[in-house]
């Protein structure tokens, strides 16, 4: 299968806002923000697209780090940032529409940061 080039640039959290602003100025649209937990760090990927080219920025931050919100640049980013907070517990500072953990109400807090399955932990009473 043909593989498209999908460059991923790893950056420091302090550079995030500048880099994202550069993508916005160049006319890219925000495709998505995703988070993966690798041992004790979060790998956060911001994807941008222009003319079907997918460019990504990547952060590696230890658990407990607060990252800046990009919703001041891409207004719609709040949905991903709130989702990331509710799933993983990533603290994002300065989201324009901050749900404070109420976008997705789940059976346990930050389910994706410590994955368990039904039956492995005691269920709540019926």
């Amino acid at each position: 299968m043909k593989e498209e080039e999908e460059p991923i640039t790893t950056i420091a959290p302090d550079d995030l806002l500048d880099k994202v602003r550069a993508y916005d100025d160049a006319g890219f649209r925000l495709v998505q923000i995703s988070c993966t937990k690798i041992e004790e760090t979060f790998e956060i990927t911001y994807c941008f697209d222009q003319d079907y080219r997918l460019d990504s920025l990547r952060l590696h931050v230890p658990i407990g780090t607060t990252i800046p919100s990009i919703s001041g640049i891409y207004w719609g980013a709040f949905i991903y940032e709130n989702e990331m907070h509710d799933f993983f517990g990533v603290e994002v500072a300065g989201i324009n529409v901050d749900y404070k953990g109420n976008l997705l109400k789940t059976a346990k807090k930050y389910p994706f940061s410590n994955v368990t399955f039904r039956g492995e932990v005691t269920c709540r009473k019926k």
Partner: peptide, 14 residues
């Protein structure tokens, strides 16, 4: 989805 953490099971649970 029975094993998913967020699923409590079938409707007869409630």
């Amino acid at each position: 989805f029975r094993e998913c953490y967020n699923i409590a099971g079938g409707v007869d649970q409630v």
